[in-house]
Amino acid sequence: MSTSVDVTLSVNGERVARRVEARRHLVDFLRLDLGLTGTHTGCEHGVCGACTVRVDGVIVRGCLVLAASLDGATVETIEGLTESGEIADLQTAFVERNAAQCGFCTPAMLLTAADLLSAAARDGAVPSREAIREHIAGNYCRCTGYHAIVDAIETVATARAGKGRS
C-alpha cells in the first residue's frame, strides 16, 4: 500500500537495520518489528502519553514519530532502561509505593519521570509536587489517581539529591 524505506538505527544499544513501511510509526516498529512490547499505545493521537520513548536522549510520543524518519537515531525504551539499571531506583520506588495498578501507563510514566529526574539532577534541585504533577501531566493514568506516582517520583528525587550532597 505504501512505499518502504531502509533504516539503520540503535535501539537500546543494539544496531538494527530494517525495511519499514513509510507509514509505520515508532511504536508499531518497536512492537511488531522488534518484539519490544513494553511500549504501549493508548490513543495514537499524541494525547495519552502511553507511547513515550526516548529518541536521541529526548522523550517523544512514539505514535507521532515515523520509523522511516529514524535512520541514524538512537532509541531507548523501557526494556533498555531496565537493562542498563538507569532507573532501577525509580522502578523500585514505583513497586514499593504501588504507583502502578494495571501497569499499562507505567513504562511511559517511568520514562517521563526519569526525564524530570535527570533535569532536576542537573539543576541540583528536588522538584515540588506541583512540578512533578506538571511534568507528568501529559501521561494519562486511569488507575492510580496519580497521587502514588507523585509520591514515588518525589521519593526518588529526594533520595538522589541526598546522595548527590553526601
Binding site: 512492537r31 519490544l36 512490547t37 513494553g38 511500549t39 504501549h40 525504551t77 523501557i78 526494556e79 531496565t82 522502578q91 514505583f94 513497586v95 514499593e96 504501588n98 502502578a100 494495571c102 501497569g103 499499562f104 507505567t106 513504562p107 517511568l110
Partner: peptide, 19 residues
C-alpha cells in the same frame, strides 16, 4: 506489602492481549 506481581509492570514485561 508490595504486590508480588508488580515488577513486570515497571519493567515493561507484562503481557497484555496485544502482546
Amino acid at each position: 506489602v508490595p504486590r508480588p506481581n508488580i515488577r513486570k509492570l515497571v519493567e515493561g514485561a507484562a503481557r497484555y492481549v496485544d502482546d
